[in-house]
Amino acid sequence: MQPLSAPPRQQANQQVNRPDPAPSRLKYRLERLMLTPMFRLALRVGIPAVIGFGAASWYFSYEEHRTQVVDTVAHIRNQIETRPEFMVNLMAIDGASSGVSDDIREIIPLDFPISSFDLDLDHMRETITGLDAVKSAELRIRQGGVLQIDVTERVPVALWRHAGTLELLDMEGVHVGPMTRRSERPNLPVIAGRGADRHVPEAMALIRAAAPLEARMRGLVRMGERRWDVVLDRGQRIMLPETGAVRALERALAMDAAVDMLGRDIAAVDLRLPRRPTLRMTGGAVEQYWRIKALETGEQQQ
């Protein structure tokens, strides 16, 4: 049996019913628009930017959204900061004497454990170096959550008697700390006078040069903020010039070694004019001198 309906026609006649290939006017214009570079740029960049900006500003126009975002950010930040890897549990201070390390602990009050994000190491270092006794400090956070502070202390080399107080000075003339009594540091030399702290190296050189007189020396006095006097016991003074003070002192020591000058009854040795060293005798010595002179010349005694 064959079907009565005709078999479907082959595609021989397709020429007739082929659809019009021409684009419609609208489609044509649309395609031309899409081929316009500026329009394409606007479509690719402008519209996403506008949509994104609009959505963001709509979202943030509500107060609760803003606070929610801020809270979430803060929470996440806090979570990260308080992870055990970032926590600091201990402070270790190296190179400081017990008093200084107590001071450091006092001026840097930290409640351990604390997150390393909360530590401002630069500021802490400035605070620590602000202490008189600290020359420099290095801070770092060591593995294992330890805040390591390496302190280099200032070494006091002299005592400065000044305006009724006694202070420790280091080689650079920086105040190291106060002192109540001279007898606490008997090994340090004493210097005095205004401006003495600015010339500590020179003072130390003088003290080294005056080593033969150590037993007799009481200290150095800065006179008029320009020159030094060496003060010995019995009120004796060696007055040194502004320049070449060490050489002048060595000269005085040489004279002393030659004629035992300082052992005699002299009030002061004036070396301020290097060409003319002058001796000032005490009152009793002058009387004695006059008496001897009178005896020698045969004058009658008064």
Binding site: P21, A22, P23, R25, Y28, E31, R32, L35
Partner: peptide, 10 residues
């Protein structure tokens, strides 16, 4: 013309 121009533009 539209067909040709559009195809060439494309």
């Amino acid at each position: 013309i539209r067909t040709a121009v559009q195809a060439a533009q494309k």
